[in-house]
Every structure is written in structure tokens, then in C-alpha cells.
């Protein structure tokens, strides 16, 4: 028994904590896909909190564990756990018309994570100035829209304008509100990323 145990390679205590946070945030993203939506005035599309959780992954987990977290979310959905929009699942969703958005999420998380934390230890996002956070979240949203629209246009054989009408325009008000909400969460400074 002793020889068997000697070969066990424990995961570092710090890594365990970050990993647990990454996994639970991936589950939060999945939970938000089903119960998180909030109706907004003057828009036919209710706000899903999904993209807000993408922002929070970058802001509070950083580039490395944030990527692990969004990777877990995408893998969980691909193998059949109902975490995609409206409780769907399956590889088909990753390849289907909204697949571009999903593939863009890791890029968005890395972008936000790098801008706020750099490549070293996690910083407190509350220390980053509001304009910088606003700019980087907006940039992340543009990446998501860009890839999302490009893929939708390709896979449904639509022109750029048509794809934008279908996949971006209805969501712009909600997504901008989510950026403001993310900034409010960060600036409240009540959540400790470390």
C-alpha cells in the first residue's frame, strides 16, 4: 500500500482552489443559461446573464483559470450537460448557427484576463480604472460579435448585413447593459479574486 501511495501526485492547494472556482463558475454560466434571463424594456429579447459570466470569468479568474472555466463550460455542453442557451446541449450547438459566439468566449476571457491581471498572479480588478475596464469589455464584446456573426453568415449562407440583423442588432442593448453591470460589480469591490 505504501508504495502505491508514494506515486500519488497531489494537486497543489492553490491550484485546487482556483480549479474549484473555475468549475463552479462554469456551472454558474450554465445555470444562467436557464434561469438567469431578465426582461428589458423596449427589446424583444430578454437578457441572458451568460455573457456577464464570461466577463466575470476574465475579471475574477484571470487569463489562465478563466480559460479553464470557459473550456469546462464548452466541454460540458458538448458532452450533453444542458448548459447552453435555454438548457440545450450537444456538439451540434457548437457547430450550429450560434457556435461562433461560443468559440469566441475563450478569446474574450483571455483578452479580459490579460488586460486586467497580466500574466502573473491575480490582481484585484477593482484597482483597474473604469475606462480601461469599459474599453476591454467592449473589445471582448466586439470579438464575440465578430466571430459570432462571421460563423452565422458562413453556416447559414447569409450576407454580412443579414447576419448582423439576425445575430447582433437584437442583442446590443442588453449586452451594453451587461457591461455597465459588470463594471458596477467590480467597482463595488466586495468580491475577493484571490
Amino acid at each position: 500500500m505504501a508504495t502505491e501511495r508514494n506515486s500519488v501526485e497531489l494537486v497543489d492547494d492553490d491550484a485546487v482552489r482556483s480549479f474549484a472556482r473555475a468549475a463552479v463558475l462554469a456551472a454558474l454560466m450554465g445555470a444562467a443559461a436557464v434561469v438567469g434571463s431578465i426582461p428589458i424594456p423596449l427589446s424583444p429579447v430578454p437578457i441572458s446573464l451568460g455573457v456577464l459570466v464570461v466577463y466575470l470569468m476574465g475579471l475574477y479568474l484571470g487569463p489562465y483559470w478563466g480559460t479553464v472555466s470557459i473550456g469546462l463550460y464548452l466541454t460540458a455542453g458538448a458532452i450533453g450537460i444542458p448548459v447552453f442557451a435555454n438548457g440545450t446541449a450537444g456538439i451540434g450547438v457548437l457547430i450550429g448557427e450560434t457556435g461562433g459566439y461560443l468559440w469566441a468566449y475563450p478569446l474574450a476571457v483571455i483578452l479580459i484576463g490579460l488586460a486586467v491581471h497580466g500574466t502573473d498572479d491575480l490582481a484585484d480588478p477593482a484597482d483597474t480604472s473604469t475606462p480601461v475596464i469599459a474599453a476591454v469589455l467592449l473589445a471582448a464584446l466586439i470579438v464575440i460579435y465578430g466571430l459570432g456573426t462571421a460563423w452565422l453568415g458562413y453556416v447559414l449562407e447569409l450576407g454580412a448585413i443579414e447576419a448582423l440583423q439576425l445575430a447582433v442588432v437584437p442583442f446590443v442593448p442588453g449586452d451594453l447593459l451587461k457591461i455597465v453591470a459588470a463594471i458596477a460589480i467590480v467597482k463595488a469591490g466586495r468580491i475577493d479574486p484571490t
Binding site: 463552479v24 463558475l25 454558474l28 431578465i38 456577464l52 460589480i185
Partner: peptide, 18 residues
């Protein structure tokens, strides 16, 4: 307000998750 509601749900959700 809508923003207030989104940020409250987001903040409480994140706190509990952590």
C-alpha cells in the same frame, strides 16, 4: 432599474458560487 437588477443578480450569484 435594469442595470441595478443585473448587477445585483451577478454579484450575489458570483459571491455564492465562490
Amino acid at each position: 432599474g435594469t442595470i441595478d437588477r443585473i448587477s445585483t443578480v451577478g454579484m450575489l450569484g458570483l459571491t455564492r458560487a465562490f
